Simulated scan of single mutants.
Amino acid sequence: METETIAQLIRSGIPGAEVQVSGDGSHFEAIIVSETFEGLSPIKRERLVMETVKDRVASGELHALSIKARTPAQSAALG
């Protein structure tokens, strides 16, 4: 699976999100910055992101996805 494919799936499910995906073909890391995450717990943020790729996980195309879901303020604080 390609990193850009995963990024597009996440962008489609979380409109307006800034998405960066890196990985080696089976294990990926996604950094997502979105106002949608305001007020959500870390687990709810992760579930929201996983919902966007669940079909690929179920099919076995996507094996592992590490998620860093941040609000714009959190992203700015991290530099």
Rank of each mutant, 00 (worst) to 15 (best):
M1I: 10
M1N: 08
M1F: 14
M1T: 14
E2H: 12
E2I: 14
E2C: 07
E2Y: 04
T3G: 13
E4S: 09
E4P: 07
T5P: 03
I6V: 12
A7C: 06
L9I: 10
I10R: 00
R11W: 00
R11P: 03
G13W: 01
I14E: 00
I14A: 03
I14M: 00
I14V: 10
P15D: 08
P15E: 13
A17M: 04
A17Y: 02
E18P: 05
E18S: 12
E18I: 12
V19M: 08
Q20N: 08
Q20P: 01
V21P: 03
S22V: 15
S22M: 12
S22P: 08
G25P: 10
S26T: 15
H27K: 15
F28N: 04
F28V: 14
F28W: 07
F28R: 11
F28P: 08
E29A: 13
E29D: 12
E29K: 15
A30S: 08
A30F: 00
A30Q: 03
I31W: 01
I31R: 15
I32K: 04
V33N: 03
V33H: 00
V33I: 12
V33L: 04
S34M: 05
E35C: 10
E35N: 11
T36N: 09
T36H: 11
E38L: 14
E38D: 14
G39T: 08
L40Y: 02
L40R: 13
S41N: 11
P42I: 13
P42G: 10
I43W: 04
I43A: 14
R45H: 00
R45C: 01
R47E: 06
L48Q: 05
L48H: 03
V49N: 02
V49A: 02
V49L: 00
M50D: 05
M50R: 15
E51T: 12
T52D: 03
V53Y: 03
K54G: 03
K54N: 11
K54H: 13
V57E: 02
V57S: 12
A58L: 14
S59F: 02
G60Q: 06
E61T: 09
L62C: 02
L62Q: 01
H63G: 08
H63F: 01
A64H: 06
A64P: 09
A64R: 09
A64I: 11
L65M: 04
S66I: 07
I67F: 00
I67L: 02
K68S: 10
K68I: 08
A69M: 07
R70E: 08
R70C: 07
T71S: 06
T71K: 04
P72Q: 11
P72Y: 00
P72G: 06
A73W: 05
A73S: 13
A76V: 10
A76S: 07
A76M: 08
A77D: 11
A77L: 10
A77Y: 03
L78N: 06
L78Q: 11
L78H: 05
G79D: 05
G79W: 01
G79R: 15
